[in-house]
């Protein structure tokens, strides 16, 4: 899911950086004092999740977990994702510093979106909580793929086929992330309901 350096055009990279900085500022402003520990735990999970690699087709894909971050953190997911991606870029050379802004937008924007779409369904019943988590995980990856496709398409119209291939490659990951997010949210609601934010 990480876009490497040298793939996207300067305009796309600049736009991504501006949106990422704005989003991070908004996220930092919205983080509650008591929420900071949750942000750190989930940012760590996001940081490690990208190392769990699944081989599908000619290239590999990895877990992302932006759905669970978005669902549980809302806007606070943006600085969490930025920190994790920055560290991945420095330690593991995933993505790259110039593509950091775009990568943050690709993973954090869907995370914030699923927060507002699915948070109202959490806690109503155990089944509804699981399915809300499932669809939050699934749609966050789907939206991330679409944003990744748009970023490539804006750079070069010939990337359209690549964008379609990315979405198809990530279908299994969408389902896996949906299941993981569903189970995690259900488990956390039972053992640690304080982590679930107040409904918007």
């Amino acid at each position: 899911m990480h876009i490497s350096e040298g793939v996207l055009s300067g305009q796309v990279l600049s736009a991504g950086a501006v949106i990422a900085v704005t989003g991070t500022a908004m996220g930092l402003k919205k983080i509650d004092y008591d929420q900071i520990v949750h942000v750190a735990i989930l940012a760590s999970a996001f940081f490690v999740a990208s190392l769990i690699h699944i081989n599908i087709g000619p290239a590999g894909v990895h877990l992302i977990l932006n759905g669970i971050l978005g669902l549980l953190l809302g806007f606070a997911a943006i600085p969490a994702i930025l920190t994790a991606l920055l560290l991945q870029s420095i330690f593991f050379q995933y993505g790259g510093l110039t593509a950091l802004g775009v990568n943050v937008v690709i993973m954090a924007a869907p995370a914030v979106l699923v927060h507002y779409l699915f948070l109202p369904f959490l806690g109503r019943s155990s089944k509804l909580t699981f399915w809300a988590g499932f669809f939050a995980g699934l749609f966050s990856i789907l939206f991330s793929c679409l944003l990744l496709g748009f970023a490539l398409w804006f750079t070069d119209k010939h990337f359209f086929e690549t964008s379609l291939a990315i979405i198809i490659t990530y279908i299994p990951i969408m389902i896996i992330e949906g299941i993981i997010t569903g189970f995690c949210v259900s488990f956390l609601l039972k053992v640690y309901p304080e982590i679930i934010p107040k409904k918007p």
Binding site: I36, V37, V39, A40, A43, S44, F47, V48, L51, T83, A84, L87, Q88, F91, F92
Partner: peptide, 13 residues
Amino acid sequence: KIAAGICIIFLLA
């Protein structure tokens, strides 16, 4: 590196 990354995240927090 993984442990260092997690430590940095918590220090920032």
